[in-house]
Write a protein that binds this DNA or RNA. Structure first.
Lengths: 303, 303
DNA sequence: GCACGGTCATCCAAAATCCGCATCGGTTGA
DNA sequence: TCAACCGATGCGGATTTTGGATGACCGTGC
């Protein structure tokens, strides 16, 4: 091979040598600062100049001066070196979980109360972890967890997949949403019997399987049969129908943060008292370091 | 020596290897792209990971994947490499004179006509050369040239220093500035005799030595003695006095671009016809590559 | 179930690089 | 004229890097 020494690119070592020399304007002192002797420093700078094809330092035996091109390159070199430092720092922070990005899936209902609290808490305790929120129903969350589109999902049971870990993050009770003028508003709290044979807006089994099954079980074990006048899957749509006095609805407590004119809420006694559960679910083999820091912030006692 | 291998810093070669591997997600192909074999590429990436203290690539014998930290570092690495390219490019352009910065000194009078034309021309023919303009009198320009505060000065003769090079860039005639109503306005052009014993605003020998000496010599060789009613060094101040009908003034043609109400100009015949000279002056040992490109744009025939 | 192909890590000898000592050439100031 | 200083260069030795051979591991297909 003819020694085609094509080093068309310089190295950071050369930049560091050059910056030291340009700042000291003295090869000996620059070499001392770089913990080496003067000859190798001279060579590194010669190499850099050769790669660039540009003379950076005007050196006489008595004085070292920057050329105009050297002045410009000094600024660039300092910027590059700063960038390498910050890149290393940023990457270490990502790896340590101190900073990072987490893609979060959540159901509409969890967005009413749980998620805002969580965001607030994350903002103060882990300000460098960015959360990318994606609203999707529970089944889509499972799919997205498997493909890695989200790191963690907030969803309703059941969670069956073996490759998932999960943690219950919230429990809440049911409340009745009643239209203005409903006679049950006179009571401070209701029992399931108060809904027997009364018009009730219920959950669609396809779009809101969890709430549908939950209410079905509750009413069955209480021996109560409400009059299902309509079934929907979105809570805010249900409240709109309540407002129109189509019937009552049973919604999770968190939905009380949705304010509708002429719709009022009353506690409902159930067995157990807080039957509505929300789980955080993530892949056990998720390697996002920020996820651990995130999960540290998720505890049920927050509710 | 205990092997205190403190390499707390990575090298660009490692970044290039990492970017190749991260883009190919295959060590063999990445090595081929880097014109080397797979083992050294593996080592470079291991070294990089060791320096950062962060695992960047998840490698099984079947697949290579970026870790979250690796994804972030890939962006940073690409940015650093882009920056090195553009830094080299920019520096080469500076060195070739294609781009750069030139500090330019100029006298107030040269700013009226010559400098605007020059700026326009430079803007179209050498758009990457930035001109930093500093107005100063000729003596200050000489001082600034010596200390390097300006690369080139536009000034009046004499230029005596041996370390300077110079080039005449403009010659122009003298014109008379006359107040409204002056009887000499009836003539199309004047001779120096028209100023004999008439009130004339002259140049101060300290602040405007060149014009003072020029006019003194002109009048003396013509055998004319005007009545010097006032002496100033700034042309626009002189024109203000002309407007107030204090007297006439002799100014370079370029000053005609200064418009004063009630001040009109008439050509004045002199010997030679264009006695006012402007020179570009620079240090012969100035190493600013942009200066050569700049001087290419400076020719007397522009006037 | 087993052989095979593919992939990345490791080992090791050879090559390349880098370092530092000694020295040179050129300049400055005494 | 000489001594001191500074950066460049030559050269021998230490260090690092390279690349072929090999190993370990894992899917795949027969």
């Amino acid at each position: 091979m003819a020694g085609a020494s094509f080093w068309s690119q310089f190295e950071l070592r050369q930049l560091r040598c050059f910056v030291a020399a340009a700042e000291e304007l003295h090869f000996g002192r620059a070499a001392a600062r770089m913990n080496m002797t003067q000859p190798p420093l001279s060579r590194q700078i010669q190499l850099l100049e050769h790669v660039l094809g540009v003379k950076l330092l005007d050196r006489t035996s008595r004085a070292v001066k920057l050329t105009p091109a050297g002045r410009v390159f000094l600024l660039e070199a300092r910027r590059i070196l700063r960038l390498t430092e910050s890149a290393a720092m940023a990457t270490r922070r990502i790896a340590s979980g101190e900073a990072g990005t987490i893609n979060v899936g959540f159901t509409a209902a969890s967005g009413y109360s749980f998620l805002p609290r969580l965001l607030l808490q994350m903002g103060s305790r882990a300000p460098n972890i960015a959360l990318v929120l994606k609203e999707m129903v529970s089944t889509d969350q499972v799919e997205s967890l498997l493909t890695g589109r989200i790191d963690v999902g907030f969803l309703r049971p059941p969670i069956d997949r073996g490759e998932f870990s999960h943690r219950r993050v919230a429990r809440e009770g049911l409340v009745a949403a009643l239209p203005a003028g409903d006679e049950r508003l006179a009571k401070a709290s209701l029992s399931l019997a108060d809904f027997d044979a009364k018009p009730l807006i219920t959950y669609a089994p396809e779009g809101a399987r969890y709430f549908h099954d939950l209410l079905s079980a509750q009413f069955e074990s209480a021996g109560v049969t409400p009059n299902a006048v309509q079934s929907l899957s979105q809570i805010h749509s249900m409240l709109a129908l309540v407002r129109a006095a189509i019937g009552a609805a049973l919604v999770p407590e968190a939905a009380m943060s949705l304010h509708f004119d002429d719709v009022q809420f009353r506690a409902v006694e159930t067995q157990p008292a807080q039957p509505v559960e929300l789980y955080a679910v993530w892949r056990s083999d998720n390697d996002n370091p920020a996820l651990a820091a995130f999960l540290d912030q998720i505890h049920e006692d927050e509710d």
